[in-house]
Design a protein around this nucleic acid. Structure first.
Ligand SMILES: [Mg+2]
Length: 317
DNA sequence: TCTTCACCTTGGAC
DNA sequence: AGTCCAAGGTGAA
């Protein structure tokens, strides 16, 4: 379990950890310092370091577990989707959209993570009408309350994300209410119970094998899951690379910066407008439109606004 | 098909 | 101190 730094065979310019891990697609990566992040993936605790000469990682597993470098690198290749040629995609998206070209200059190496659908789904059920900081603390609370202990690293105990079965237990809704989950407590409990009733125990992950529209519709059946959350899950854990989650921000910017047919007519984000925005970006960016869209709008996150301001201030000194 | 409203909680703005 | 509002929406009328 003692762990040493190992080098990840991947150039730093095709994986920007600072943006990729804390842009709001996953909520459990903690920034340790300027170049290190720590969190849980696949039942292990990982620490990453992005230095000028490459990306390094350390692994801390359960005491019983035997470490395998081959297996660990396989986990990372899968999670960071390192087989996908990011330069090629950036070039393609830039050629299709000047706005993207501008934004991309400040956000290189952004990747969609290939997440676990269970954690991804319940995390985004927490996201409605909420902010990233509270979403993160709620996901953390779920893990501490209901997830198994993995191990301790530097005085911090790390937990797995809870199983569906655990979240479906009778007292969960009330307990989550007490943990200040608000109305999301019921959504989480109900969704867990529905998933438990499915004949296919791996129903969620099996949606990787069905077409985007079908997966999206199936997810929308779940309580607390609407078009936006369903698209987040499709994009971030079900391999639907052209799923476009449209939140209020994407909607507003789309109205302002893109000429999308009959979008400005509606006062609220209607189902029709939602579809029109998605279709527009899919038509513009192609098969990986969801990735392009994520790059485009992650740059506007409040979290990165601050770092941009800092960057500008520093560069002016 | 579109609009309106309630919904938990928290933190910032007046 | 009290009120209002927005924050990765969803569901029901
Ligand atoms: Mg639903």
């Amino acid at each position: 379990m003692a762990s040493v730094w190992k080098r990840l065979s991947c150039d730093g310019d095709v994986l920007n950890l600072g943006i990729t891990l804390v842009c709001g697609q996953a909520f459990r990566w903690k920034k340790l310092n300027n170049e290190e992040w720590c969190g849980v993936l696949s039942g292990k605790v990982w620490t990453f370091k992005q230095s000028s000469d490459g990306i390094y990682y350390k692994v801390n597993s359960r005491l019983s577990e035997v470490e395998s470098t081959t297996q660990n690198e396989s986990i990372l290749n899968d999670y960071f989707q390192l087989n996908i040629d990011l330069h090629h995609l950036y070039d393609h998206w830039s050629s299709r959209d000047d706005n993207f070209k501008q934004v991309a200059a400040t956000i290189s190496g952004f990747r969609l993570l290939r997440q676990d659908p269970v954690e991804n789904l319940f995390s985004f059920i927490c996201s409605s009408n909420n902010n990233i900081e509270r979403i993160s603390s709620m996901v953390e609370a779920l893990c501490v309350k209901y997830g198994g202990i993995i191990t301790e690293v530097n005085g911090v105990v790390y937990h797995d994300f809870p199983s569906i079965a655990t979240l479906a237990e009778p007292q969960v809704e009330q307990e989550l209410r007490e943990l200040k989950f608000g109305y999301r407590a019921k959504f989480i409990h109900e969704t867990a119970k529905i998933l438990m009733k499915k004949c296919n125990k791996d129903w969620l992950i099996s949606l990787r094998e069905v077409p985007y529209e079908e997966a999206h519709a199936a997810l929308c059946e779940l309580p607390g899951v609407g078009a936006k959350v369903a698209d987040c899950v499709c994009l971030m854990s079900l391999d639907k690379t052209d799923a476009i989650p449209v939140d209020t921000h994407v909607w507003q910017i789309s109205c302002r910066d893109y000429n999308i047919p009959d979008l400005k007519k509606s006062k609220s984000l209607t189902n029709k407008a939602y579809k029109a925005i998605g279709d527009h970006f899919r038509q513009l960016f192609g098969k990986y439109a969801g990735w392009a869209n994520s790059v485009l709008f992650s740059g506007d996150l409040k979290k990165f606004q601050d770092s941009k301001v800092n960057y500008i201030q520093v560069s002016l000194i």
